[in-house]
């Protein structure tokens, strides 16, 4: 997993609430057996017509937002399915950070597994960031994970919370599985105890 430390990049506004995983990556693209290559299909049905032409109004098709690295989104971003194809598609497009008032739980977790930082901020802060993002490519937002701040193009800063363990993994690009396997003796001990207590499991 790629580390996430500090990012300054173009932010795109997506104020729609309840942007679901079917919008982020429609099911026809879940037939892959790989993690890579999904960026071209990100937001497919909002981004392209049925015959594959770009829909010019869609934010990521506008010249100012083609290099977007940060999404500023409406409430409850990523609701719906557990498909990790959603963060894979965001990452493959180049998006490393999503900011919203709220996220669906499974999507939120899946982001951290892929070096994407999801940030929850109060409505007022999201509104200001949304307005900043609307300015286009000149409005570059800075996200500093170490210092836990988001800063607008004109220098207004907001602090954010992040789980200490997830922060540590993102800053260092750590693999969860490797960390958990270090606790293999605790897993062995649990299994022995559980086998005695609940042998039918």
């Amino acid at each position: 997993m790629e580390k996430f430390t500090k990012l300054t990049g173009i932010a795109a506004p997506m104020p729609l609430v309840n942007i679901d995983t079917d919008m982020i990556i429609p099911k026809q693209f879940l037939k892959t057996i790989k993690r890579s290559g999904l960026g071209v299909n990100l937001f497919d049905e909002m981004r392209f017509t049925q015959d594959g032409k770009e829909i010019p109004d869609f934010v990521l098709n506008q010249p100012a937002y083609r290099e977007t690295q940060i999404l500023i989104a409406g409430d409850n971003f990523g609701c719906g399915s557990s498909r990790e194809h959603a963060p894979w598609a965001l990452l493959d497009f180049g998006i490393r950070c999503v900011i919203s008032t709220s996220f669906a739980d499974i999507f939120f977790n899946n982001c951290f597994q892929n070096g994407i930082l999801p940030i929850k901020l109060p409505q007022e802060a999201v509104d200001i960031l949304m307005d900043d993002a609307r300015k286009g490519a000149n409005a570059r937002i800075t996200v500093d994970l170490e210092g836990q701040t988001v800063t607008t193009s004109d220098g207004q800063s907001f602090g954010f919370d992040v789980d200490a363990f997830r922060k540590h993994c993102l800053l260092n690009g750590l693999d969860d599985i490797g960390l958990s396997l270090e606790k293999v003796s605790a897993i062995d001990a649990f299994e022995a105890k559980a086998q005695a207590l609940r042998p039918w499991v």
């Binding site: 993690r35 557990s82 963060p87 499974i106 899946n110 969860d176 958990s180 396997l181 897993i187």
Partner: peptide
């Protein structure tokens, strides 16, 4: 509950999940 594919791999390898 549902999990993502990275967590599927985690459960396959460790039979555990990191949770809060």
């Amino acid at each position: 509950h549902g999990i993502g594919t990275s967590e599927v791999e985690h459960v396959l390898a460790t039979q555990t999940l990191i949770q809060r």
